[in-house]
Amino acid sequence: MNIVLVQVKISLDEISPLPKEFPNLLFLHLSENSCRNLGKEHWERVEVLFGGHLTRNELKMATNLKWIHAPNDDLSNLCLDEIEQRGTVLLTYSENPNAKETAEFVSACLFSFAKQLFRWKDATKFPGLLWDAKWINSMWNLKGKTMLQIGLSTTGLAIAAMGKSLGMKVVGVHSKKSFHPSCKKTLTFKELHSVLPAADVVSLALPKQQQFHRFFGKNELQLMKDDSILIVVESNRAVDEEALYEAGQKKLRGIVIDAYRETPISAHSPLFTLPSLIVTPDVARLPSDKKSPLFLEFKHNLRHYLQGSFMDMRTLFNPATIAEISRQSLI
């Protein structure tokens, strides 16, 4: 009997009915740390991995692995290059169930910088100069401003919809051009430099994947409009910290980084000396008070996987793998 290895924390009520619905599979629920002690004889029987951690050595032992469902779009702890080389392992993931909360967080950041709320807080230290403060003439009306939304995942689309609702002109940037009702137009990553100089607000919501490490660097920051706003959620690794420090000293109106818990900004980083910077500890998605659809998405995909209807699996990361699976099944 082949194994479904479950690394994700799920309740007993969720996992208990699985053997009845899927009697030909053995569900093994282990923590990520416990998986490290899993022997070769068990890895050889693993057909499905429900989790986000897989090393090269584990993949090498998992000779029967056919499908991985990651709990989120952070695939950096999966040996993606080796998975791609094997060519027969399907990879799906669950999208952010708290995209609306993240969009609300971005909205709060926009209003705070547009209306100079943090500057006014500083101005109150000198009451006699309050009425002559230079920020009186620098207030923004967000309506009509151009917002560049880089990354159109579930979170990115929610942020784009929020921007449109405020009357902003939203331009989406993603891996490929597509239609999104909240975006005035969408461009590819290769076209990013052509639109950066026109953006009043740049919002990054990129996956936590190695390919986006320092995606937004010195060249991109130099192309940003003076007095513009930069907001980074989901992955602070997408921005080059050294280049951001240089740009943040004079160029940018405001910077918000919702730092990912597993890659915090160093306490000694010079970024913390920037008066226009706000760093938050992975709170954009909060409060998370609703039941996550993670387990339901996994069950949906598991049913289609067992039926062989791979194209009906949600959030398929590597659809090209289906062709290789089909080819090998004919051999």
Results as ranks from 00 to 15, higher is better:
Asn77Thr: 08
Lys66Ala: 02
Gln85Ser: 12
Asn57Ser: 14
Ile68Lys: 01
His29Pro: 04
Leu38Asp: 05
Cys35Trp: 02
Gly87Ile: 10
Phe50His: 05
Asn37Arg: 06
Leu49Pro: 06
Leu38Gly: 06
Leu26Gly: 05
Phe27Ile: 10
Ile68Gly: 03
Gly52Pro: 03
Ser76Asn: 14
Trp43Cys: 02
Arg86Gln: 12
Ala62Val: 05
Arg45Tyr: 11
Asn72Val: 01
Pro97Ile: 08
Asn37Cys: 05
Leu90Pro: 00
Glu32Lys: 10
Leu91Asp: 00
Lys66Pro: 01
Gly52Glu: 06
Arg45Thr: 10
Asp74Gln: 13
Cys79Asp: 12
Thr55Pro: 14
Leu90Asp: 05
Leu28Trp: 12
Asn77Ile: 02
Gln85Asn: 15
Gly87Tyr: 07
Val48Ala: 02
Leu65Thr: 10
Asn96Glu: 13
Arg86Lys: 11
Thr92Gln: 00
Arg36Phe: 09
Asn72Ile: 02
Ser94Met: 08
Phe50Lys: 00
Leu49Glu: 09
His29Cys: 14
Gly87Phe: 03
Asn98Ile: 10
His69Gly: 01
Ser76Thr: 07
Pro71Asn: 13
Met61Glu: 03
Gly87Lys: 08
Asn98Val: 08
Pro23Glu: 04
Leu49Gln: 13
Arg56Trp: 07
Gly39Pro: 01
Trp67Tyr: 11
His29Asp: 06
Ile83Leu: 15
Asn98Asp: 15
Cys35Asp: 04
Trp67Lys: 00
Asn96Ile: 06
Tyr93Trp: 11
Leu78Gln: 09
Glu95Ala: 12
Leu59Phe: 08
Asn72Met: 02
Tyr93Arg: 08
Asn64Ala: 04
Cys35Ala: 04
Lys40Ser: 14
Leu59Cys: 07
Val48Gly: 02
Lys100Gln: 15
Arg36Leu: 14
Val48Leu: 08
Ser94Ile: 03
Leu65Tyr: 04
Asn33Met: 10
His53Met: 10
His53Lys: 09
Leu30His: 12
Ser76Pro: 05
Gly39Arg: 04
Val89Ser: 08
Leu38Gln: 00
Val46Tyr: 09
Glu21Tyr: 14
Phe22Val: 07
Lys40Leu: 14
Ile68Trp: 01
His42Pro: 00
Phe50Glu: 01
Asn37Ile: 04
Tyr93Val: 02
Asp74Ala: 14
Thr92Gly: 04
Leu80Ser: 06
Lys60Thr: 13
Leu59Pro: 03
Ile68Val: 06
Glu82Thr: 07
Asn64Met: 03
His53Asp: 05
Lys60Trp: 12
Cys79His: 10
Lys60Glu: 15
Leu38Pro: 03
Asn64Lys: 01
Lys60Phe: 14
Ala62His: 13
Val46Asn: 04
